[in-house]
Amino acid sequence: MMIFVLRRCGTMVLTMLVVSLLLFLLLEISPGNVATKVLGPYSSEEQRNLWLEAHGYFDPIYERYFRWLGNFVIGDFGDSIRFKVPVGEVLWPRLANTGILALATLGVVVPVSLILGVLAGMREGSTLDRTISVSSIVTTSVPEFASAVLLSAVFVFLLDILPGTSGMSEGFDLKQLILPVMVLAVYDFGYVTRMTRASMAEVMLTHYIRTAVLKGLPYKTVIARHALRNALITPFTVIMLQINWLLSGVIVVEYYFAYKGFGALLLEASLNSDIFVIEACAMVAVFVAVATQTIADVGYTYLNPRIRFS
């Protein structure tokens, strides 16, 4: 088990290294481009060369990569071209905002989809099951930008009970969080629900559930003690991996609602070729994704006694 955890962590570090190399190659392979992006298209050839010289861009590529990587590890991401401040100063507050958004979304998605999924999977084929299944297909079919438009139309335009933007210019406002969370939750809950349902339905058909029923255990005990424990292993993994999806979703939602989060920052940086911000954002996003994946794998192993004790 220990070995497994260590190995997973090793894989995680390796993945991060490869990702960093990819990013580096993609964005910094040509120093000329970097200089143009940093100094703007109207800079002179001379200015660019001076800048490149000063920042060590004429060194061999591997040297540059390792220096870049070293700086990354100690948290020095360079200066943002657009904001003219170290990337970290922009990034960390934005990340915190996104964290709030993501946590709030998971806080809604996890209980709702687990309960609905278990209810649907418990009695496969029942009316309740079909209602839940079809509605989860419908909600996952509406892209985030579309549901943002639709929900805004209803809650902002028609009912006028929620603000249409979530800039939070006057400090944190819970009301402004509601619509973004709603949009993310509506899109995400369907998938988790369907996976939970499938897992539950599969468990309900196993022979050990039959054994439990034919032992004479009350139905509630069969569900609570025998079914749930096995049925919730898959959803656990799914929820952890859902964090990866959420990081995609926040880009759209933050853009739409002008929420000052990490996704909006990445998008802005991409549209403005703010390469050091792009690099930092991408590394952070991948780190979060890989870390949750690792937790999912380790957790899966831990929850599964068949793997844990062998």
Partner: peptide, 13 residues
């Protein structure tokens, strides 16, 4: 008593 004992027992208990 069932045909496949492995399947008849709950793997996580």
């Amino acid at each position: 008593v069932y045909q496949e004992p492995m399947a008849a027992l709950n793997p996580s208990m």
